[in-house]
Design a protein around this nucleic acid. Sequence first.
DNA 1: GACTCGTGGAA
DNA 2: TTTCCAAGAGT
Length: 318
Amino acid sequence: MTATPDTTAMPRPAAPVRAAVPAATPQTSTLLHAPVIDWFAVHARDLPWRRPEAGPWGVMVSEFMLQQTPVSRVLPVYEEWLARWPRPADLAAEPPGEAVRAWGRLGYPRRALRLHAAASAITERHGGEVPQDHARLLALPGVGEYTAAAVASFAYGQRHAVLDTNVRRVLARAVSGVQYPPNATTAAERRLARALLPEDESTAARWAAATMELGALVCTARTPSCTRCPIAAECAWLAAGSPAHDGPPRRGQTYAGTDRQVRGKLLAVLREAVAPVPQAALDAVWHEPVQRARALDGLVADGLVEPLADGRYRLPLT
DNA sequence: GACTCGTGGAA
DNA sequence: TTTCCAAGAGT
């Protein structure tokens, strides 16, 4: 286990005091790796994007769809998507509006637009092959720190810290001894995740998938099944008596009455329509004209909706 | 860092 | 019924 420097600029006077995170010693790592990886070997779900035939493109599509959306709702859309667009170039060859339509009700439809844009970039810049390099993945539209690491790790077997909400929760409990991680990912969490990463590349990739799956199936947000947990004996949170979360409340998301709800209703009309939609059809989805106009303007600004010269609207052709 | 951005199922 | 929350990214 190599100690990773946590700063790139070495001379730094008055380094900030770090939170008292339990040291991720080599002993801690080796203690956790085997149980979690062995558990994964037995309990991993048979998800289509984990099968060899999915390939890097399948992995990437699944990662886009799974951003803030549960597996159960992604499954059918994923299958249709890969059947229709088996390669990035297939998707890039169609208008972005078709991606938005096929996205259906997965939510956050800008992800569909970004996946289409990513497919175009892959086609143009990478010869139609999903890049392997983390930096090149990160440069694609809609690919952030998590997704770049996930594709590099799951599709190409590389060694990366894959920090999603599941992994963050597992580490918060097992190592840091708290019920929930902070609202936003911190530098301390990244340090911890990197320190816990197995040295061996393929082991690291399995560790990433295994910790994620553990968080999804056992170490869940609401009612974790600690009796089924392979590392219950090592869990700092359990050892501390499963103390309740303290600190600021985790942000709830109100939805009713927001612009997001209005945008969703507007876009739903356009997804179902086979021809451009007249203004009146959009006016019918929301009573309040100011908010309705703001939502529609936002959709146009985002490139999710295309206004026509005759006053009608449609999903974007370009 | 704080916000915004959809949707629907489960507790 | 209301609340929570689900493999985040971009601004």
